[in-house]
């Protein structure tokens, strides 16, 4: 069984008036199928309101399905007994770095998760040190989070999740509020965790550049999974992406426009290096 398996997952936000009658139903997830293997780096792309954040919250059982089933690490999310085990195994990092840091000292914040699951004190110290090292924030262990940059705060949040020793991290637009430097810092930390520690990563984002290194990409629109495949196959379909109000990375777009203008360039170019090589081959 895959680490995460969703079958026909449905989520409806139901709005009720004062008497409890249904006013309107918004289907945020419409029969979504998702398969993620242990150790994979999967990206979920989508415009605002595409249902990608709703999907993320399901993976951590912050929301439960209105229909269909979702298994995380072989456990059904509908079963309330599995709640804490799933949350421990599928950690979550949110968009706003300020609103997810609980303690006023970095190391104490990282310890918050292990404290909650009842890890003994001596083990907490080891875990805090290990996870702060894994995101390169060990120097700041005694700092106040208020004095850190956005990227650093987000790395502390990742360390906080890592300290619970999860098999999987779900990142819900972790870079949306960061500057380009912070964005790079966070992505590098995430990629490193995926490569070196074999942590399964599910990155939810609307920045195309961030998904270039993913193993697989899902594209969502209006609660449906509309495209899936490797970044290369996804980005070779520039027009389809545009119809979902998504942009392709600038390099891919440049290659696409050059090809349309008549140059003989392959589809789905992702990096500057690839474009340079393709162009050199022409002459």
């Amino acid at each position: 069984m895959n680490f995460i398996e969703a079958r026909k997952l449905v989520h409806e936000y139901i709005r009720r008036d004062e008497e409890g009658n249904v006013e309107s139903i918004l289907t945020a997830l419409n029969e979504v199928d998702l398969d993620v293997k242990q150790g994979e780096f999967v990206a979920v792309l989508g415009h605002n309101g595409s249902g990608k954040s709703t999907l993320a919250k399901h993976l951590n059982v912050l929301l439960t399905a209105s229909g269909g089933t979702l298994w995380v690490d072989g456990k059904d999310t509908k079963d309330a007994d599995n709640l804490w085990a799933i949350r421990q195994n599928a950690g979550m990092v949110f968009q706003n770095p300020d609103n997810q840091i609980i303690a006023s000292v970095v190391e104490e914040d990282v310890a918050f998760g292990p404290e909650n699951i009842g890890v003994p004190t001596s083990e907490i110290w080891k875990r805090v040190e290990r996870s702060l090292k894994s995101v390169g924030m060990i120097k700041y262990r005694e700092h106040s989070p208020n004095k850190l940059s956005g990227g650093q705060k987000q790395r502390v949040a990742i360390a906080g999740v890592m300290a619970m020793e999860p098999k999987c991290i779900v990142l819900d637009e972790p870079t949306a509020m960061l500057d380009p430097n912070g964005r790079r810092e966070v992505l590098e930390a995430v990629e490193q965790l995926n490569k070196e520690k074999g942590i399964t990563v599910i990155l939810i984002t609307h920045y195309m550049e961030e998904v270039v290194h993913a193993d697989r990409v899902y594209v969502m629109d209006h609660g449906n999974v509309v495209m899936q495949g490797s970044p290369r196959t996804i980005f070779s379909q520039v027009d389809t992406l545009k119809s979902y109000r998504l942009d392709v990375p600038q390099i891919t777009l440049l290659a696409y426009e050059l090809k349309k203008a008549g140059l003989d360039i392959p589809d789905g170019i992702l990096t500057r290096q690839e474009l340079v090589e393709a162009l050199c081959r022409l002459y």
């Binding site: 912050l62 421990q88 706003n96 104490e108 998760g113």
Partner: peptide, 26 residues
């Protein structure tokens, strides 16, 4: 809004009150 976000982040990190909680710095 912040309170709402924070509550969600705390829940995602398995916070469920003081019961069975250990301390980093007892």
């Amino acid at each position: 809004r912040r309170a709402n976000d924070l509550a969600m982040a705390m829940e995602a990190r398995c916070y469920h009150g003081g019961e069975g909680r250990t301390k980093m710095k007892p």
